[in-house]
Design a binder for these strands. Sequence first.
DNA 1: CAGGGATATTTGCAAATGCATTTAAATCTG
DNA 2: CAGATTTAAATGCATTTGCAAATATCCCTG
Lengths: 162, 162
Amino acid sequence: MTDQSPPEKPPGTLPRLGEIGLTNYAPYLMNRIMGRYNASLREEMADLGLTTPKMRALAVLSVIEGPLIRELAVYSVVEQSTLSRALDQLAGEGLIRREADADDSRATRVYITESGRSHFETLWPRMVEAQERMFRGIPAEERHAFVGTLQKMLTNIRKHEI
Amino acid sequence: MTDQSPPEKPPGTLPRLGEIGLTNYAPYLMNRIMGRYNASLREEMADLGLTTPKMRALAVLSVIEGPLIRELAVYSVVEQSTLSRALDQLAGEGLIRREADADDSRATRVYITESGRSHFETLWPRMVEAQERMFRGIPAEERHAFVGTLQKMLTNIRKHEI
DNA sequence: CAGGGATATTTGCAAATGCATTTAAATCTG
DNA sequence: CAGATTTAAATGCATTTGCAAATATCCCTG
């Protein structure tokens, strides 16, 4: 299962993917798991008229009050141009509201509406279920350690964004 | 159907995303981290004429010999119709080869060519780098525990696919 | 062993995506 | 303070995507 652990890089030679094995390469596992998670939510989202970018924007907006659009793009992991159009739709459906920034008239802040919030609240239990499926049989302590590692990883990548 | 988790808790018992906080919700963290990982590889891939689906197919094919297309779709986390077209391109570029299955003439098996393998070998060091960036400062033991948890999660979701 | 599903893959098409560009406004520089 | 540069967001456009349907083949049942 778990391979031999080389904490130090062997000088010169990089192990091949074939040697590590797909299932020991963390990004592969993460992509595969998230692909499944996202797919499992797609149907529920479609019922609510949501796409992945729209859902992500709503999720972030349910937590963060009035971010700039470029900030929202980072938090919700959506290209800014894609987000711009997702926000067009969400605004048209009355789920969010765009508001010119007070200090910078280039900038726009985004707020979730009550309707947007209740829309997201409808989806949220399905998201919790999907998460529970992923973590089934994994003890709480291990989950916490896992999330702790993810948070460190986020800190690492954050140095390169925002 | 072995759903051990509490099916439907009484209303109000489910913590909201806002209460958990985005950075305690594992799928959010994973999506964000993988979004960054994938974005960081996109430029390198573009230089090699690869898109994400093409790269993923090559990666899997460098490890798994001659899978069926539908299997490759699962392993590489790409929609089958998208994969079908990605394979068209890869075959046109001589990086893979499709071969009719001996026993089932509906089915097609896919093989990486030498050229495809060396293409992927060019990208692989960048993938290792991207992974190293993610894991920077995280001790080997913690990495292994993390990968171990991912493997359990993959087992969980596998019950729902393949 | 014929007929009605399953299964493997491809393809048509509308919608979504992402890059590059545009527009508008803020900020820096000499 | 003018002009150049940077930044925020939207948009044009070609490509990509994913769903649904089409095509081809296989398998099961009576």
